[in-house]
Amino acid sequence: MEISWTGIEVGDKDAYSHAYRKLYERFYNYGVKLVEDSALVEDVIQEILMTLWVNREGLRAIKNPDGYYYVLFRRALSKRVAALAKTKTIDGAEFDPEFAADVMMIRQETDQALKEKLAAAIHTLSARQQEALFLRFYEGFSYEETATILGISVKATYKLMARSLLTLRDKVSVPLVYIFFLLKENFH
């Protein structure tokens, strides 16, 4: 069941409860890939989901609520990490997402050597490339939505994704179509 933004907008607590559970899981999976402090991620999720309920009447004006709340979550998490870094609560913390290679291990039956090769290849990508792959293949966002979340143009998102995929193809030595298959299997 998808999120009923209209239901939330009119104050349907069941719709909000469903959205809360669904968004909490999605934001948590995304947030712990950006920062290692799960308690911090949970705090920011609570903040964003409370904002959703408090500002529910304005949902109609938002063209893409999924993408909008991802952007809010990412920005809030970034601000919180920056604030904590200033107070030295997180030693040397900065908002530079690094997705661990083990998170991206292929879950389907494939040969172990290919799994290791793909994981190693993903690990060589920049944090930004890894984040774009995560948003595109795990969360299923379109290029436009990914661009919005990352705060870059759609054209830059296409370039970022193309470079990432070509790098993976060259490092894993399999056709690009197979890389797509492996990534989809890897992130679902």
Rank of each mutant, 00 (worst) to 15 (best):
E139S: 10
G140R: 09
F141T: 14
F141M: 12
S142A: 00
S142E: 04
S142V: 00
Y143P: 08
Y143G: 14
Y143H: 09
E144K: 13
E144S: 09
E145V: 06
E145C: 04
E145T: 05
E145G: 04
T146L: 12
T146I: 05
A147Q: 02
T148G: 07
T148I: 10
T148F: 14
T148P: 05
T148H: 13
I149R: 00
I149D: 12
I149C: 12
L150I: 05
L150R: 06
L150H: 01
G151C: 00
I152V: 04
I152M: 00
I152Y: 02
I152A: 09
S153M: 04
S153C: 07
V154N: 02
V154H: 14
K155A: 15
K155M: 12
A156T: 10
A156M: 09
A156C: 03
A156S: 04
T157Y: 07
T157W: 05
T157C: 04
Y158P: 08
Y158I: 15
K159V: 15
K159W: 07
K159I: 13
L160E: 02
L160K: 06
L160T: 12
M161V: 08
M161A: 10
M161S: 04
A162I: 11
A162V: 10
A162H: 15
A162G: 11
R163A: 06
R163D: 11
R163Y: 15
S164N: 01
S164P: 04
S164F: 06
L165N: 06
L165D: 06
L165C: 01
L166T: 11
L166E: 15
L166K: 13
T167W: 10
T167A: 12
T167G: 09
L168N: 08
R169C: 05
D170E: 13
D170M: 01
D170G: 15
D170A: 13
D170Y: 03
D170H: 02
D170C: 05
K171C: 05
V172K: 11
V172A: 00
S173V: 11
S173E: 13
V174T: 05
P175V: 03
L176I: 04
L176M: 09
V177H: 06
Y178C: 01
Y178V: 07
Y178K: 06
Y178F: 10
Y178A: 05
I179C: 07
I179D: 10
I179P: 10
F180P: 00
F180V: 08
F180E: 15
F180L: 10
F180M: 08
F180S: 12
F181K: 14
L182W: 11
L182S: 01
L182E: 05
L182M: 11
L182D: 03
